[in-house]
Amino acid sequence: MRYAKLAKADLPKLFQSLKSRGEVFAPVEEGGKVTFRKVDDLKEVKLEYTRTLLPPKKLLLPPEEEILRYEGEEYRESFEGKKAVLFGVHHCDVNGLLKLDRVFLDSPRDEYYARRRENTLVVGISCVPDRYCFCTSVGSGYATTGFDLFLHDLGREYLVRVGSGEGYRLSKEGYFQEAGKKEVEQAARMEERRMGKVRRRINLAGMGDLIETEGKEGWEEVSAKCLACGTCNLVCPTCQCYDVSDLLTLDVRKGSRVRRWDSCMLKRHALVAGGLNFRPTVVERTVNRLSCKVGEEVRCVGCGRCTVYCPAGIDFVEMLSAVRGEAR
C-alpha cells in the first residue's frame, strides 16, 4: 500500500480537488444528529463523529429509487451515473460497503448499485468509538480495502492510506507529502489506541449454531419488547433487502417501478403468493435477522446502530448474549 501525509492545513485543498471530481457527501451535524448529505464547504463537515443515523449506504443504494419507467410494452431503466464522493466514512461503514459489494457487484450484478459504486470515490476517516461500538469483535474495526483514501488523524497532520488507482492519482497532487515509517508507526499506534476504546465485546464462537438451536421460549423472551418496526434493518449498513412496487398512472399504461429498502422484521418480507407467510411472527423474523447478521457468515460490522436507534431499547449484543445463555 502507498502512504502519504497531508497537513491538516491542506485538507481544504484535498476537499476542493474532491469537489472537482463530483458532488461531495459528508457527515454534517443537523438537528442534534449527524447525517451524510451534500456539502459545498469543508466547514460544514463534522470530521469527528460517532455514527450517522443512516449509513453512507444510502448514497449507493438510495432508500427509495425509481428503477425504470414504462409505457405500454416499452420501458427504460433509470440509471444514474453521476460522479460523487463519500467523504469521512468510518472503518465499520467502509467494511459495510464491502459486504454490500459482495451482494450487489457479484453475479448477478445490480446495475443501479454498481454504477453508483464505480462512480463514487470513498474517503475514509478514523473514528471516535462510543460504548455501543463493537466493530473489533466482528472483524470490522479496521478497513484494509474498500476506499480510495483513508485519513488517520496524527494531530497536526493525517497519515493517508491509498487504496485505489484514483486514490493514487489524488495522492500525487502537490499538497500531499511523502510519509515514512515514522508516520505509519505513529498511525498504527493511534489506531491501536482507538480500537482499545472499543470496549464492547461479542463472542461469536458457535453463534450460528446457538441461534439455530435456541428454543421458542428463549426467542420469545429476547424479542418480547420488539415492536416489529423495522428500524434495526433500516439503519443497518449491511441490510440489502428491498421491495419493488409499480406506480401506475390513471391511464393504466404509464408508470414507474420503484424500489424501497425493506425489512425482514416486517410482514411482507416472507409473504408469498397464496398468502403463505413463512416467517409469520416476530420470533421467526428475529431468528432470521440474527442468522443473517452473525450466522454462518458475519455480516454485522459492529456499528451499534440497531441498538442505538431501537425504539424499544433492544440491545443487539445483549440479545446474542442471552442466546448464548450468558447473564444479561
Binding site: G32, K33, L227, A228, C229, G230, V235, L266, P311
Partner: peptide, 25 residues
C-alpha cells in the same frame, strides 16, 4: 408496514427515544 419505515427512510431521529409517546410502530 409501520410509520417507522418511512420515518427512518427520511432519516428522522426516533421520537420514542426522545421520550414521546409515538404510535408510529
Amino acid at each position: 408496514y409501520p410509520v417507522c419505515v418511512e420515518c427512518k427512510l427520511r432519516e428522522n431521529g426516533c421520537l420514542m427515544l426522545e421520550g414521546k409517546l409515538c404510535l408510529g410502530p
